[in-house]
């Protein structure tokens, strides 16, 4: 942004909203890292912490919603401000959902901790690293308005999908080997699925960043009616 708003209070309100979204993103990042560590290190206490801290993420969603509504009602934002507010309203839903997915992974950690360890979790750790990096990059793109970075996020989602498929097949194999593995393999399979979904939400974030910066909607390119460009 070349200049700042003449109304300094408005400028501060927008900045506060941006900061809050970032803080929320930081908590989500922490949650996903902790939840996966809870799986790989069989750390029950850490898993419980993730569940507890999700409440803070939920509270922040409500706060961000309220801030957006207030700005819409009182400031009638236009142009880039309007795109920022509509983006905020959408990505806050993704972030909250990502927090829930971290909780889901933590719950799988709790399941898995009740039985002896049976399979290596390095692929799961890898998918978690990728998913976390995606979120980090999407948040970076959001703060700096960096479309190229957002597009990178959108492209890298395939890596996560491929890794998920690998874990899926691996677990399927273990289930076929021995039916005693089914419970634990299913838990790992689910954990992988939650992480894969986490990555999808990071992609949603990145798509909204492109909209926020350029004003063009890049979502669902294959679902568009012919002749209707992103508006």
């Amino acid at each position: 942004m070349a200049t700042t708003h003449t109304d300094k209070t408005y400028e501060a309100e927008l900045r506060e909203l941006r900061d809050r979204l970032l803080a929320m993103g930081g908590l989500v990042e922490q949650a996903i890292v902790s939840s996966v560590r809870a799986v790989t290190e069989r750390d029950v206490e850490l898993a419980e912490q993730v569940k507890l801290r999700d409440r803070e993420i939920n509270r922040m969603e409500v706060d961000v919603d309220g801030q957006c509504r207030r700005i819409l009602a009182l400031r009638q934002p236009a142009a880039s401000d309007l795109r920022f507010i509509t983006t905020a309203l959408k990505i806050v839903v993704d972030l909250e959902r990502m927090g829930d997915l971290a909780v889901n992974v933590a719950e799988r950690a709790l399941d898995l901790a009740q039985a002896p360890a049976f399979a290596p979790t390095h692929d799961l750790a890898k998918i978690a690293d990728l998913a976390e990096a995606q979120l980090k990059k999407a948040l970076d793109a959001f703060v700096t308005g960096d479309v190229a970075k957002a597009e990178e996020v959108m492209k890298s989602d395939e890596l996560i999908d491929a890794l998920y498929l690998k874990i899926f097949n691996d677990m399927l194999g273990r289930m076929m080997e021995d039916s005693k593995n089914i419970r634990r393999a299913t838990a790992l399979m689910f954990a992988a699925k939650h992480l894969e979904r986490f990555g999808d939400h990071a992609t949603n974030l990145a798509e909204m960043v492109v909209y926020m910066v350029r004003g063009t909607d890049v979502r669902h390119p294959r679902s568009r009616a012919p002749g209707v460009p992103g508006a």
Binding site: T3, T6, D7
Partner: peptide, 18 residues
């Protein structure tokens, strides 16, 4: 009001004119 092309328009409709 959603995606002006010119920076000066953007600045005006978002209230960034000094």
């Amino acid at each position: 009001f959603t995606t002006p092309r010119e920076q000066r328009t953007e600045d005006y409709v978002t209230g960034k004119f000094g």
